[in-house]
Write a protein that binds this DNA or RNA. Structure first.
Length: 504
RNA sequence: GGUGGGUUCGUAUAACGGCUAGUACUCAAGAUUUUCAUUCUUGCAAUAGGAGUUCGAUUCUCCUACCCACUACCA
């Protein structure tokens, strides 16, 4: 039995979105569970769509998520370009492998499974327009290839001459006539397609001396000994072509699994960049600044923990078959299996995403959270000893979803309120309340004693306490008065109360 | 248009062909709390429609509807 080897093969045409990260994650989990290898390969065979920085973004995203490739990166964390023990198949960037594809394309031509096509883009466009106006769809296959400009219709001398003279020819796959391709997908089961509905896909382009996705993908998966191809559902329509390509080469083909798409939270259609901007949640793992300066938010910058992000991604389309929802990467590796992956697209739910982060925030130690809070305090001009911050974090972590919530929850432990919420003041800052609060404050030394004092006199504790709270925090909600008083001290409590008396 | 895929509460999902269709998020109500949040309890809410197979269908088959993907010298 072959060692399990899977790959994540993104195209550097922009930032990796969360659906892509999920595909990478599932590949990684399958590999790790089987004790196999997870390979990263960059499919940049379309020179026109290359986006600077996209490759680095992909690598950084995977690193942030803890999805570590066994193969594809060199010691410095860049895409490996030279073969060595760790990266025997380098380079892992297809544009740097261009030399190896042409001979495979020609091998197919010699075997009669492919041919040279000399049609120009304009000619094909004309054919398409003509078909369309006749209410039909132009398909470059057995039905039409006999009337088009390709090596199937020319003598050898003519072909040789055009191959030499022209620089815009292609190699096309010769799709068999009326043949049913029977396929098996790990997630979708048995699928059959008749080749008459398929077209003669371009495999190799003379213009830029590069293969198209289909050829490069099959050749590399074969050379890299990939055993399972796990990719997005948008590739399902190309599966027959890929089956046929493996057969044409006479290679053992890997198993295939086509993952359901990630859909937008409301309405229909797949999740796109715009949905996130519109609905206030990130669709990218990391913040991305496009070449035109447009900034898209990222889960990392929005305050998500990477393990929470990985967890929520894992649960989008897969379930463990048990009631467990919180999984560490190790647990995911243990529990994951492709046959528990659903077939239908999963709508992303931002509320659930936040819930995951909340759970992960609670699991973090006070030490770690304090160290994350310290810089935020500093930004707000607050210096506090780490021990104090740790105590505060212990008090507020249950009330937060993100570390970035901490300041909003606890700022009044560090500075006096500059203003008071009007509605709350109207409700609680009443002369009789103020009077009672004042007396209780002056005659007691601690919060506990104060509470006892108020209760002993049978004063309305809620009204008096909230009156004090208003003076301390500027509103009628927040931490327990006793906790607030402990942190800011009796003197500051009195100061704030007097200030409120002056201003309200 | 053609080809392929899909369809269980609003969302994510569970349910060898067999209990009252379960769980989580959201939402609502109540309890707890000096307030808010937390926590706890309770509640709302689904098998797209129609045939068929079967003692019995969410599950298997067919038809319809709707949704999605693909239909490039893009991946």
């Amino acid at each position: 039995m072959r060692k399990t080897r899977v790959r994540f093969a993104p195209s550097p045409t922009g930032p990796l979105h969360m659906g892509g990260v999920r595909t990478a994650l599932y590949n990684y989990l399958v590999a790790k569970k089987a004790g196999g290898d997870f390979i990263l390969r960059i499919e940049d065979t379309d020179s026109h769509r290359f986006v600077p920085g996209a490759e680095e973004y992909i690598i950084e995203s995977l690193r942030w998520c803890g999805i570590v490739p066994d193969e594809g990166l060199d010691a410095s964390g860049r895409l490996a370009e030279v073969p060595d023990e760790r990266n025997p198949h380098a380079p892992y960037r297809q544009s740097q492998r261009r030399g190896i594809y042409r001979k495979y394309a020609e091998q197919l031509v010699e075997a009669g499974c492919a041919y040279y096509a000399f049609d120009t883009a304009e000619e094909l466009e004309k054919e398409r327009a003509a078909a369309e106006s006749a209410g039909q769809t132009f398909i470059y296959n057995a039905a039409t290839r006999g009337t088009l400009r390709n090596s199937l219709n020319m003598d050898a001398a003519e072909v040789a001459r055009l191959l030499e003279e022209r620089t815009d020819w292609t190699v096309r796959f010769k799709m068999p006539v009326n043949t049913v391709v029977a396929m098996d997908d790990l997630i979708r089961g048995h699928i059959e397609v008749n080749t008459d509905t398929l077209d003669d896909k371009v495999l190799w382009k003379r213009a830029d001396e590069l293969p198209t996705y289909h050829l490069a993908n099959i050749v590399d998966d074969h050379l890299m000994e990939i055993t399972q191809v796990i990719r997005g559902e948008e590739w399902l329509p190309s599966l027959p072509l890929h089956y046929l390509l493996y057969a044409a080469f006479g290679w053992e083909r890997p198993e295939f699994a086509h993952l359901p798409l990630l859909l937008k939270p409301v309405g229909n259609g797949k999740l796109s960049k715009r949905d996130g901007d519109k609905m206030g949640f990130p669709v990218f793992p990391l913040q991305w600044t496009a070449p035109d300066g447009q900034v898209s938010r990222g889960y990392r910058e929005d305050g998500y923990f990477p393990d929470a992000f990985v967890n929520l991604l894992a649960m989008l389309g897969w379930n463990p078959g048990t009631e467990q929802e919180i999984f560490s990467m190790e647990e995911l590796i243990q529990a994951f299996s492709l046959d528990k992956v659903g077939k239908s697209g999963a709508k992303f739910n931002p509320d659930k995403a936040k819930w995951f982060n909340k759970e992960y925030l609670r699991m973090r130690s006070d030490e770690e959270l304090a160290s994350l809070f310290m810089p935020i305090l500093k930004e707000n001009g607050v210096e506090a000893p780490e021990g104090t911050v740790r105590e505060i974090v212990a008090l507020i972590k249950e009330r937060a979803t993100f570390v970035s919530d901490f300041w909003n929850i606890s700022w009044y432990l560090f500075k006096a309120p500059a203003e008071y919420v009007e509605k709350d003041a109207a409700k609680f800052w009443k002369p009789e309340n103020v009077e009672m609060a004042h007396e209780a404050l002056l005659n007691t030394e601690s919060a506990e004693a104060m509470e006892e004092y108020i209760r002993g006199r049978e004063w309305p504790i809620g009204k008096v306490m909230n009156c004090i709270r208003l003076a301390l925090t500027g509103s009628s909600s927040g931490l327990a008065i006793a906790d607030i008083m402990r942190f800011i001290g009796r003197e500051e409590v009195l100061n704030r109360f007097h200030r409120a008396e002056e201003r309200l």
